[in-house]
Design a protein around this nucleic acid. Structure first.
Lengths: 124, 124
DNA sequence: GTTTTACACGTACATCTGTCCTTGAGTCAA
DNA sequence: TTGACTCAAGGACAGATGTACGTGTAAAAC
């Protein structure tokens, strides 16, 4: 199992963008960050470096520019992160989280419909 | 809005126990922690102190024993925490989290049924 | 060619986190 | 009344986190 260190919140944001881009330079990641998320270029650089240190990304040089790409799949990180959250905040129970999402967090009809078909897909 | 500082992971565990107990001394919280979660009495004490500092709990003295009780409802903390997670890890979209819960995290038939009725409750 | 721009890379640093230790004062039993 | 015990209270401390600055160098613009 030999877990990597968990991602911090800010690192997560950067990781998400990196998954989206597939492979990207610091600049590209910086530019792809949500507009309202004011953050310095070098801060993003630091997060990418830490992502690499923690084993979540790898980098190679393209000329003198560092190109980062994800090394761990979103699925994996999501699993680890959500499991941990459920453990700590919900004593290991997933249902209360579900309930919160459905009840306390208005979902569109579309979302509801989509959910429903997800559920149907689960029946064997 | 004047947000309180977010809870850290370890603080969350203690907060959860405190919600469960309603009001409790350090010792009670310590004893109510999951057995496999080895943690020192004074560590719990520290978390409770921080919970109070951050505005998540209040304490009053019963004799010379401090009795802590929650000041912020689980609902609220859950909302804030989950919102933040969704923002950072899912770019603000709740559906992918749902999908993860349903697809990548085996749910029992019971859970599925329960979910279904939750959904039905949502239709107006 | 010299100025500007763009980056990499290392450094910095205050704060937060996870964890525990120490000290001192009440409490109870011997 | 002397230990043994229980707490509170505060201190400690290494490591993680969020955020950015500074220096140097390659490339682009002038």
């Amino acid at each position: 199992m030999s877990e990597r260190p968990a991602l911090s919140k800010a690192e997560m944001e950067v990781a998400r963008v990196l998954w989206e881009l597939g492979a990207a330079s610091v600049r590209q990641v910086h530019e792809a960050m949500p507009a309202e998320r004011a953050i310095d270029f070098t801060t993003v650089q630091t997060y990418l470096r830490r992502l690499e240190q923690k084993g979540y990304a790898r980098a190679k040089l393209d000329g003198r520019v560092r190109i980062y790409s994800p090394k761990v799949k979103p699925r994996t990180v999501i699993r680890e992160t959500v499991d941990d959250l459920i453990e700590r905040l919900f004593a290991g129970e997933a249902m209360p989280l579900m309930r919160h999402l459905i009840e306390d967090r208005g979902m569109s009809d579309e979302d509801l419909a989509q959910l429903r078909s997800l559920l149907d897909g689960e029946e064997e």
